Every structure is written in structure tokens, then in C-alpha cells.
Measured scan of single mutants.
Amino acid sequence: MQRVNMIMAESPGLITICLLGYLLSAECTVFLDHENANKILNRPKRYNSGKLEEFVQGNLERECMEEKCSFEEAREVFENTERTTEFWKQYVDGDQCESNPCLNGGSCKDDINSYECWCPFGFEGKNCELDVTCNIKNGRCEQFCKNSADNKVVCSCTEGYRLAENQKSCEPAVPFPCGRVSVSQTSKLTRAETVFPDVDYVNSTEAETILDNITQSTQSFNDFTRVVGGEDAKPGQFPWQVVLNGKVDAFCGGSIVNEKWIVTAAHCVETGVKITVVAGEHNIEETEHTEQKRNVIRIIPHHNYNAAINKYNHDIALLELDEPLVLNSYVTPICIADKEYTNIFLKFGSGYVSGWGRVFHKGRSALVLQYLRVPLVDRATCLRSTKFTIYNNMFCAGFHEGGRDSCQGDSGGPHVTEVEGTSFLTGIISWGEECAMKGKYGIYTKVSRYVNWIKEKTKLT
């Protein structure tokens, strides 16, 4: 034993070699072989497995989906700052455009905790909710729209109204504003409101030439003092309507412009014939205590009207009353817009006519005020429907199939267009061939041609 100890002390290297040989010859039971080890760690190889990531292109799944990435790591994937920024906006807080917040056709661009709407022409605001041009839906104005110097929408209202708090709607500024039905039992019968379409306001006024200088022999019209197929109006439903009495009662109609003036057809009036105007009328054979009678003290036909040349060209006249009318729910003026808007309103496509005229061709006159909704007829169809001249200051309205029309005794009465609950004068009943005849239409004086003249002559002093 002493000898062994001496050998170990003198030859430590020998001992180490012996131990190493023993270990190498022993069977290893701690580690699995290569094949079995792979069965336990069965993990798919990654895209760049075996390579240094710093030297390969980034992978979106590896960089940002398996674990949260930084902007720089995302930049490695896209290799483009702009594309990385677009991805980053949604990656950080989701897609803010998912709810489609942009209105009126706006395009949404996502941002971090926010979004941006790219608005089409005519709109602005956070969600493109603000109209900035009158060309689109009248700028959301209830009545009139004008573009300011910086191309912003400025709404306005006709006389007797003021802008509401929203700067879009119009509200009454006087007790009985024009064009409004205020009798409670008839307010439910107000005709369907007309909503502004998209309009090209630059070209809204037709490029028409008034044929002022045409000389033409007097034409022989049949029954051209021209509501057939209409309905009984309720008291106060058309408070701007008046009836004219002269040699015979209810020979023509008219509309209240203001307390002192009536507008009617020029062919209705004769110099030297006494005319009485009755406002607030409903049943011409009954006294309903809503009527107001006034005498006409002055007749002003349009300066281009000449019955000797043509009885229905420039067929418009103004009547001055001896005493002002007292405005109330049964006696209310009709609204008159400017030339541009009167023309736009007419193009809405349908209007209402009213009167006490004959209820059928050569038949009896109506006792109760009649009204009828009539569609506008395109000019080409209008011209083809008659052998008589249709001037540019006239328009056609009615039904091709016949059966409904204005008729004798309705002449001078109103053709009105309702705009968001307020009625505007767009025409004056003038003439036609018979009444409600198939293929024939009622012919009306186009008020847009005469609004400046009306307003100039009827100013209240």
C-alpha cells in the first residue's frame, strides 16, 4: 500500500490518463441519441435557420407576430419608411378606419389613436360632414345658397324668414311668412316636400332668348283662358290664391305678392273693366268669414305684352289694390325667389296649380277651390304637342294621358313649387288646347323671366 501511494504521488498524470480511459469505455446513459432527441424537440425550422439574422431580410411573422416588435424591426421587413409607417399605425392600436367614419364618399386613412378623412370636392370637416359648395344638395341650405369668396357655403332665406341657429334652416321672422300653410287642420295635408338634388348652379339658368321682337298675326285659340281631375282644397291650404270678379264672377285667378299687390295673367284683364279681388276665398257660393274683398285701382301688364300681336306672350300683369290686405292664416303671400332659384325650383319637376275653373272641358265651374299636382314636361315634348308657338318664356306641365289639367277660369292662378315646406311661385296658368285632352298640356308663363320686374313694381313704400 505504501508503494502504491508513492507511485500516485510521483505520477499524477498517469492516474488522470487511467481515469479518462475508464470513462470513455463506459456506456453513456444520461444523453439520448440524435434521433430520439429530435422526437422530443420537434420544432419547425425557421426561415433563416442556421444563418445569422443580421444578414437576412426581415420576416413579418418572425419579427412582429411571434413577439412584439419595434418600429426598427418592422422597418427591416418593409425596407421602406412609408410602408412601415402605414403598417405601424394599425399594428400599434388597430384600424381606426374600420367603422368607416368618413361621410359623403370620403376616404379614410388610419393613424395612431386617430384617423384622417380625405374629402371629395365640396366637403370638409373631420368626417367630411361639412358642405362647402352650393353645387351639392344646395349646400344643405333649406332655401338659398351662395358661395363666399373663400368658396364656403353661405345660406340665406327669402323675405319674412331668418336663418336658424344651425345656419342652414329657415324659420319665420314674421307672423305670416310667405308660402307657408298655417291653418292647423290643413298642415297635415301639406304636399310632399321637395329635397334639393345635386345641381350645376353655374349652368342652372337656361341660355334662352326671349323672342321679344317676333311679330306674329293673332292666333285663334280655343278655350285658351284655361282644375280638371283635381281635388277639393281645404280652407287655408292655398292662402296665396285669390279669385278675380268682373263682368262675371271667378273669371280668373291670381296670387298675393304682398298686402297691396296681386300677380295674374295679362290676358285676364281689360282696361276700363272694374275688377274686384277676393282673398281668403274657399267656396265661392258661401260666406265663410275668411274672405277679404278689395278693388283694383291700377293694372300693370308687362311692358312687352301686346294682345294685338299675341294674347299669351309675356302673359303676366300686376294688380294694385285700393287697401292693403290683412295677412292671416287664410290670406298669405306666395314666396318669389330670384331668377336663378325660381328656375331651379321649376326644374324640380312638379308643381301645384289651383283655381275655381271648370271641372271638365266646357263644363261647370268649381264651387270649392280645386288643386292638382302636375309634372313638368320637357321642352321637346311640349313643342311636338301643339302647332302653336311655345315661346321661351312659357313652359308645359300636365299629363300625356289627359284627364287632369287646369281649365277655363283658372287662368292667372299660381303654379307653385314647394321647397322644404315653403311654396314659391314658378308659373302662372296661361293657356292650353281644350282641357285635359290626351297628348295636350297646360301652358304656363315662366315666372323666372319676370321676377325682377315683379319685385321692382310691387315694392311697398
Rank of each mutant, 00 (worst) to 15 (best):
Q2R: 15
Q2D: 05
M8P: 10
S11Q: 07
I15A: 06
T16W: 12
C18M: 12
C18E: 01
L19K: 01
L19I: 14
L20P: 01
L23V: 11
L24A: 10
L24C: 09
E27F: 02
E27W: 03
C28W: 01
T29N: 14
T29V: 15
V30H: 15
V30S: 15
F31I: 15
L32C: 05
H34I: 10
N36S: 11
A37T: 15
K39N: 08
K39C: 04
R43H: 08
R46H: 04
R46S: 14
Y47I: 11
S49T: 14
K51P: 15
K51N: 12
L52W: 10
V56C: 06
V56F: 05
Q57E: 08
G58Q: 04
G58V: 13
N59H: 09
E61M: 07
R62G: 10
R62F: 07
M65N: 06
E66A: 07
E66W: 04
E67V: 06
K68F: 06
K68N: 15
E76I: 13
F78K: 15
F78G: 14
F78A: 04
E79M: 14
T81H: 12
R83T: 13
K89Y: 05
C97E: 02
N100G: 04
P101N: 05
L103W: 04
L103E: 12
G105C: 03
G105P: 02
G106F: 02
D110G: 15
S114K: 06
S114Q: 13
S114P: 04
Y115M: 03
C117A: 02
G122W: 03
G122S: 05
G122M: 05
F123G: 03
K126L: 14
N127A: 06
E129L: 03
D131V: 05
I136V: 07
N138M: 10
N138H: 11
N138F: 04
N138D: 08
C141V: 00
Q143P: 00
Q143A: 00
Q143N: 00
C145D: 00
C145K: 02
C145N: 00
S148P: 09
A149F: 12
A149S: 11
A149R: 09
D150Y: 07
K152G: 08
V153P: 15
V153R: 14
S156D: 11
S156E: 10
C157H: 01
E159K: 06
G160C: 01
Y161A: 01
Y161W: 10
Y161H: 04
R162V: 11
R162P: 00
A164H: 11
A164G: 10
Q167W: 07
C170E: 01
E171M: 10
E171G: 05
P175A: 14
P175I: 06
F176G: 02
P177S: 05
S184G: 08
Q185T: 11
K188R: 08
L189Q: 09
R191N: 15
A192R: 06
A192Y: 09
E193H: 09
T194M: 12
T194Q: 11
T194N: 09
T194C: 04
P197N: 06
D198W: 12
D200E: 10
Y201L: 07
V202E: 13
E208R: 12
E208Y: 14
T209Y: 10
D212A: 07
T215C: 04
T215W: 05
S217V: 13
T218E: 09
Q219H: 12
Q219I: 10
S220L: 12
F221R: 09
D223G: 10
F224M: 12
F224G: 12
V227N: 13
G229F: 11
G230P: 10
E231S: 05
D232V: 07
A233H: 05
A233S: 08
K234A: 14
P235G: 05
Q237V: 06
Q237M: 08
F238D: 01
F238I: 06
Q241T: 14
Q241A: 10
V242M: 00
V242A: 04
V242Q: 01
V243D: 02
L244V: 03
G246I: 02
G246K: 00
G246S: 08
K247E: 03
C252Q: 00
V257E: 00
V257R: 01
V257Y: 02
V257N: 00
E259H: 05
E259R: 06
W261H: 01
W261G: 00
V263K: 00
V263A: 04
V263Y: 00
A265W: 01
A265L: 02
H267V: 02
V269I: 14
E270Q: 08
E270Y: 03
G272F: 06
G272V: 02
V273N: 03
V273Y: 06
K274A: 05
K274T: 03
I275R: 00
V277C: 03
V277N: 00
V277D: 00
V278M: 07
H282V: 11
E286I: 10
E286V: 07
H289M: 14
N295W: 02
I297D: 02
R298T: 05
R298M: 03
P301F: 13
H302C: 02
H302F: 08
H302M: 02
A307D: 06
I309E: 11
K311W: 04
Y312Q: 06
D315L: 01
I316D: 00
L319P: 01
E320Q: 06
L321F: 01
E323F: 08
V326N: 08
A337V: 04
A337Q: 01
T342G: 06
N343I: 03
I344H: 15
F345T: 01
K347F: 05
Y352M: 04
S354Y: 08
S354N: 09
W356E: 02
H361C: 05
K362F: 05
G363A: 05
S365G: 06
L367T: 14
V368S: 06
L369P: 15
Q370W: 03
Y371T: 13
R373F: 04
V374Q: 05
D378I: 03
R379T: 14
R384M: 12
R384T: 15
S385L: 07
K387W: 05
K387L: 06
F388G: 06
F388E: 10
F399S: 13
H400V: 14
E401G: 10
G402V: 13
G403I: 15
G403D: 15
R404W: 15
R404F: 15
Q408W: 15
Q408Y: 13
S411Y: 13
G413S: 15
H415N: 00
H415D: 01
V416Q: 07
T417E: 01
T417A: 05
G421F: 04
T422S: 05
T422D: 00
F424A: 01
L425E: 01
T426Q: 02
G427R: 00
G432C: 12
E434F: 11
C435D: 04
C435H: 04
M437S: 08
M437N: 05
K438R: 15
G439W: 04
K440S: 08
G442N: 14
R449M: 14
R449I: 05
Y450L: 01
V451Q: 03
V451N: 03
K457T: 14
K459F: 06
L460Y: 14
L460R: 12
T461H: 15
T461F: 12
